[in-house]
Design a binder for these strands. Structure first.
Lengths: 143, 143
DNA sequence: TGATTTACTTATCAAATGATAAGTAAGAGG
DNA sequence: CCTCTTACTTATCATTTGATAAGTAAATCA
């Protein structure tokens, strides 16, 4: 097994994933938030409740900048900050109702584009895709 | 086959790909160029020769901004611009020698991290990974 | 040949992002 | 109790990035 050849395949693959992700998510984001704010909301959506520190380290941004962006999201009423009752330095971040509504819309838009993309795939194709996603997530893109 | 469930799997998967890509490529970029400039060089590396317009549309950036960044890369002697002899409005972009050297270093660094990531994978695992990459690229992340 | 389109450049401005210093307040450890 | 560490905030600044207007020069088209 030539690992170098596999590496080049991976480079090409990740480029495709980035391209297609861009294609699927274009216009999904509301104009009232920035790209970084959208990525933060996306992370909160799938991981809530999360602390500010967790967001900071998972999104690879500094704590001060994370704090600033969360303040902006809070001012836009898209997230709620809930103080931890045990450790009062911590606070848990959740989507607010407005945030839920916004992210539901975004995900619906992305899902629509996804469905367009796989509309011609057979059931066998879809099963192949699912298995392939599982294998790669487990064996290559594990965290 | 539940396409909605598959969609959620895809969301989780693309997040993992982004995370791992970030992990593999950290420190791969020279400090003398910006993130966007690095992405442009990466695109030129795998697609050269390319025109300014092609870079602009494939990287989803405006022609003026693309032109500016290419000028900066040219000033740093990382790319060469070659006038098209047939259509004199066009110019083809290539890596310069210095650009080749820089990108070879970057790719070597990324490959090293990739090899660390798969060092415990068996030959069967690697074959599974390769097949999965092929399937997804063909059936889901096609351009 | 004149009008239109294409490929690209220059210039300018605003906004987003990143980096860093300095601070507060609470928990943890000796 | 005192020190250290953790979790987070505020403030500030530089840089990067994005958007837009206006221009040049070459090709195409009618």
């Amino acid at each position: 097994m030539d690992k170098s050849a596999l590496f080049y395949k991976l480079v090409s693959f990740t480029n495709s994933v980035h391209q297609v992700t861009h294609e699927l998510t274009r216009n999904a984001k509301s104009d009232s938030i920035t790209q970084v704010q959208y990525k933060i909301l996306e992370y909160i959506t799938v991981s809530q409740p999360v602390t500010t520190s967790e967001i900071s380290s998972c999104m690879n941004m500094s704590l001060p900048n994370t704090s600033r962006e969360l303040r902006k999201l809070s001012e836009k009423r898209l997230i709620d900050k809930i103080d931890d009752t045990e450790d009062r330095r911590k606070q848990y971040i959740r989507l607010s109702n407005d945030g839920e509504i916004m992210m539901n819309k975004s995900f619906a838009s992305i899902e629509t584009r996804f469905l367009e993309r796989v509309q011609n795939a057979s059931n066998d194709d879809l099963e192949d895709i699912e298995k392939a996603l599982d294998i790669l997530q487990k064996k290559l893109f594990y965290q």
